Structure formats: structure tokens, C-alpha cells
Simulated assay, not measured.
Amino acid sequence: MHEQTKYLKSCLVIASGNVGKIYEFRRLLADFPLTIHGQPEGLHVEETGNTFLENARLKALAVANATGKCSLADDSGLSVDHLAGAPGVHSARYASTDEGRISRLLREMETCKNRSAHFSSAICIASPNNEILLEVEGRCEGLITNKPRGSKGFGYDPIFEVLDTGLTFAEMGIEKKQLLSHRGRAFALLKPGLTNLLQL
């Protein structure tokens, strides 16, 4: 076992203050013998990366250093073809609330016929000793709807219809969303590496 993985034996800190995201990772990690915590309240990490993976690394390393425990960070976002990939890494900063972000995006897409988009998720696990233990990326293709649909999920979920399903993320049950989502797909790639790290 690698020296750094001893930190994983007790706890994994999710590098996020987003309650919805922490909940999703708690469910995704339910089969692993790990105690899951959210990052300390008031901790803020500047997301200065140009890609989702760069931001995931920044967050995982910063939270691992702050807590002295291994940290898992996810940086994810929505990229819209018509908007040349925007909001992309700025997805969370597109407006100050989920409702504001959705309203702004729908306004900018109002007369657009090409509504293709995709969600990306980069996941990184870092140790408190500045080492990247695992990193993966997942992607989910879809379309931007004309108006919000569904009441589940968070963020852009009500306006992102997953390709070939006819459903937005906000209309899906958690199990289906975990299977199809960018985060679920990234986690499927992460799972074998995490299993190996924990020697399960």
C-alpha cells in the first residue's frame, strides 16, 4: 500500500460546500468503508484553472492540506455548443443563484436552434502531502431545454435533457441520474482505482 493511502482508512473529505454535491458523493461512495465529510465551513478555494481537471486538482490539494485528510474534489460544469463552450469552468459563477444561472442561460439561448450541450466532471483525490492519488474525467451529452423541467437535482439539472432519454436530470430518480450523469460516469472510472487504493 502506498504511504499516502493510510489517510484514506479513516476519512475522505469532499472538497465542496455544495450540499447537493456532497449528498451525491455520499451515495456514490456508500459501498466504500469511508467516513465522508464536507469541507470545513468558511474554507474558500480560488478556482483559477483553465480546465475542470485543473480546478479539481486545486480544490483537492487545498482541502487535503487544510484538513490533514485525503480529499476528493469534483469540478464540473455545463458547456453549450452555441455559446462556444460557455459557461464551462465558470458554470458556478454564471450568476449568484441556481435560478439566476438558469435564467441567464435560457435568455442567451432564446433564439438558438442548436441546443447541443454536454456536462463534464473531473474528479481528483489528493493526499495531505500534496500528492495526487487518482484523477478521472466523465462526460454526458444532452440538449438545453426551452424551459426548466423537474424538481430534483440542483444547478442546471432542470434545463439539461440527457441525450436519448427525453428526461432532464431534474426529472430523473437518483439511481438513473447516477448511472447516466457526467459525475456518475467519472465515478465509474474512479471506482477501480479507489478499490485498489483501499486494497478492497
Rank of each mutant, 00 (worst) to 15 (best):
99 E>G: 11
164 D>T: 02
43 L>S: 09
8 L>D: 04
181 S>F: 02
38 G>C: 03
14 I>K: 00
132 I>S: 11
175 E>I: 10
152 K>L: 08
67 T>W: 11
79 S>P: 12
111 T>I: 09
190 L>R: 05
60 A>D: 08
17 G>N: 11
89 V>K: 08
21 K>Y: 11
110 E>A: 15
28 L>I: 04
73 A>S: 15
158 P>N: 00
49 G>L: 06
163 L>H: 05
147 K>Q: 12
170 A>N: 05
118 H>N: 15
146 N>Y: 13
135 E>M: 01
140 C>V: 04
175 E>N: 12
83 L>S: 09
108 E>V: 12
114 N>G: 13
83 L>P: 12
47 E>Q: 11
23 Y>K: 14
99 E>C: 06
195 T>N: 14
130 N>L: 11
179 L>G: 04
43 L>A: 09
9 K>T: 08
159 I>L: 06
159 I>D: 01
161 E>W: 00
26 R>F: 02
77 G>W: 03
174 I>R: 05
23 Y>W: 13
153 G>C: 02
88 G>R: 07
5 T>I: 14
12 L>H: 04
181 S>Y: 02
200 L>G: 08
97 T>M: 07
95 A>R: 07
169 F>H: 10
77 G>L: 05
70 C>M: 08
166 G>P: 01
105 L>H: 03
50 N>A: 14
122 A>D: 00
7 Y>R: 08
159 I>P: 01
47 E>T: 08
120 S>D: 08
163 L>T: 03
52 F>G: 02
138 G>S: 04
67 T>S: 12
21 K>M: 10
124 C>V: 05
132 I>F: 07
189 L>W: 01
43 L>W: 13
99 E>T: 13
198 L>E: 01
13 V>C: 09
75 D>Q: 07
115 R>Y: 11
191 K>Q: 15
70 C>P: 03
13 V>W: 03
90 H>R: 15
161 E>M: 07
87 P>G: 13
156 Y>Q: 00
170 A>E: 09
117 A>Y: 03
118 H>F: 14
39 Q>E: 14
17 G>Q: 12
198 L>K: 01
98 D>P: 06
27 R>H: 07
53 L>V: 13
61 L>D: 06
171 E>H: 03
182 H>D: 04
51 T>A: 06
66 A>E: 11
133 L>F: 01
186 A>N: 04
72 L>Q: 10
26 R>E: 11
47 E>Y: 01
145 T>V: 07
25 F>D: 04
85 G>K: 04
9 K>I: 04
163 L>Y: 01
52 F>W: 06
54 E>D: 14
52 F>K: 03
40 P>M: 02
51 T>D: 05
35 T>H: 11
63 V>I: 15
93 R>Y: 10
78 L>V: 05
8 L>C: 02
144 I>N: 00
